[in-house]
Design a protein around this nucleic acid. Structure first.
Lengths: 112, 112
DNA sequence: GTGGGTGGTTACCCCGAGGTGAGCAAGCAC
DNA sequence: GTGCTTGCTCACCTCGGGGTAACCACCCAC
């Protein structure tokens, strides 16, 4: 979701949901967040296997964006073969918590 | 967000966030929901004015989708000039409630 | 030497969400 | 007759997020 950035926009500026939507707006981001919530500290390949259908390119770019947004922490070990571990930051954990009611709404609707 | 629909996908199927994301995935949907939360029962033109930047075409298509998803209720009066009123359904109100923690997270982050 | 495993990058393409601008129905005011 | 109003629809175009495939470094096992 491209930012709205309209200083005079009351709804867009006050509600704060658009801020959150910019972070979780990618196609697979909530799934990545969820996977890291259920399986803390996963490697790149493990994440890819946890999220069937995602390609390496998209996973890599999403992880870079999530890291830049400060919700995911990345640790790279300088070994061969490469080893990189991802985990949620405190902010990422709080974001995940904030997503729980939404998940509950979705589950309720899916069950309904 | 296109659906993932992979029966064997544990994360995608269990977490239910993807279900919610399909409903709120449009660029302006959360803003529409928010506007209807703060100003119940608004007309088309009022909504457009409440959400600066949105075009009529996109507002119309988003409203149709939200109505089809059962979160928005639409009443059209057969008069000239046309009069159409939109409001949140019970499900829409619950969706909005589920979005509040996310909004709080966004506000907190925007406040730095 | 060849193949596999790891975590990527690069180049390329495609499709669809969203933006642009016009038009329309029908009644009223002037 | 002209213009204003409202809630759209239609045709057209753009742009970028995401998908596809190939390639890379570096070491090990066979």
């Amino acid at each position: 979701m491209t930012t709205l950035n309209r200083p005079g926009t009351p709804a867009g500026h006050v509600c704060g949901i658009d801020t959150a939507m910019e972070v979780i707006g990618g196609k697979w981001k909530v799934l990545i967040l969820w996977a890291l919530h259920e399986h803390p500290c996963r490697r790149f390949g493990e994440l890819r296997r946890l999220i069937p259908g995602i390609t390496e390119k998209v996973l890599a770019s999403h992880m870079r964006e999530l890291e830049a947004d400060g919700v995911v922490h990345r640790v790279a070990y300088d070994v061969v073969p490469p080893r990189v571990e991802y985990s949620l930051t405190e902010d990422g954990k709080r974001l995940n918590d904030a997503l729980q009611p939404l998940a509950a709404w979705g589950r309720e609707r899916a069950a309904g």
